[in-house]
């Protein structure tokens, strides 16, 4: 930062920064302690601490199933999106491909198209295809939303990769599949992992599309939280939120570690 900032501006910057961080963190910090509230109301003050709402998540059939559903659908969508997104990034890399940029834009569309629009469209389509109210349908719907994240992140890794490496490998006798397995994939692995995390987080968090395409059997955790807050406001929601945040942090941490490891493999110790 240039040294010539006036003190007032400097203070304003700090205040603004703190305010932004506060607005980002306050809702999360506010909800978490309520998960341990023994009261039946989702309200401060906390009278006494207990873990009864976590027990509720476990014993209540609706909550338990929604957690399992989120894990199933999240994993499914992550796998589908990571595979397809990575393939798309590889295919779109070559500039010879006609309409490459139009195709890329199409893949990225779900990022900007309102989820409601996508949801209505999918519901109609699924009705025809017989995919409505099925796990496969929800997985596909979520995957559509997740692919852009994988595509962007893998494309970034591919762009950063030295294109001569693949030529070198094939001149040394590696067939295209082996070039991919031995050279390209290990080098873009950090990008693939990042994309996968974003994909999982996106699926975990997704409500709108789920409302349109999922039946009662595919009710995800996010969807269940949404429903429960309108029907009966119970601190179980806070406990679910707590689980979600902890779960997300764990995955992010794990992937951060994997990324760090595979990046270390590329760089000197």
């Amino acid at each position: 930062m240039s040294g010539q900032t006036s003190p007032i501006l400097r203070i304003a910057q700090i205040v603004f920064g703190v305010a932004v961080v506060f607005f980002l963190l306050a809702p999360i910090v506010a909800i978490l302690p309520l998960a341990f509230n023994s009261s039946v109301f989702l309200n401060y003050p906390i009278e006494s601490f207990s873990s009864r709402w976590f027990g509720e998540l476990q014993s209540n059939d609706m909550w338990r199933r929604s957690i399992v559903n989120s894990l199933i659908i999240g994993s499914g969508a992550t796998i589908v999106a990571t595979v397809l997104g990575t393939l798309a990034a590889l295919g779109l890399r070559s500039s010879q491909l006609p309409f490459a940029s139009a195709i890329r834009t199409t893949f990225l569309m779900p990022m900007v198209v309102p989820a409601v629009v996508l949801g209505v469209g999918m519901q109609m389509l699924y009705g025809r295809l017989g995919l409505a109210n099925s796990y496969l349908g929800v997985v596909v719907a979520h995957a559509v939303l997740c692919i852009p994240f994988v595509l962007v992140s893998v494309s970034g890794s591919l762009n950063a990769m030295d294109p001569w490496l693949e030529r070198a490998a094939s001149s040394l006798g590696a067939s295209p599949t082996r070039v991919f397995r031995r050279i390209t994939m290990p080098i873009i692995m950090p990008g693939i992992l990042t994309g996968a995390v974003f994909a999982f987080a996106t699926s975990l968090d997704e409500v709108v599309l789920t409302l349109f395409v999922a039946g009662p059997n595919q009710r995800t955790l996010a969807r269940q939280m949404f429903a429960s807050i309108r029907e009966n406001i119970s601190p179980a929601v806070a406990a679910a939120a707590f689980l979600m945040i902890v779960g997300t942090l764990c995955i992010a941490g794990l992937v951060g570690f994997l990324r760090w490891r595979s990046q270390k493999a590329l760089k000197p110790a």
Binding site: W164, L165, I187, S262, A265
Partner: peptide, 10 residues
């Protein structure tokens, strides 16, 4: 042998 060597970094 390429100008930038193209050694596999991993």
């Amino acid at each position: 042998v390429f100008q930038n060597y193209a050694l596999f970094p991993h």
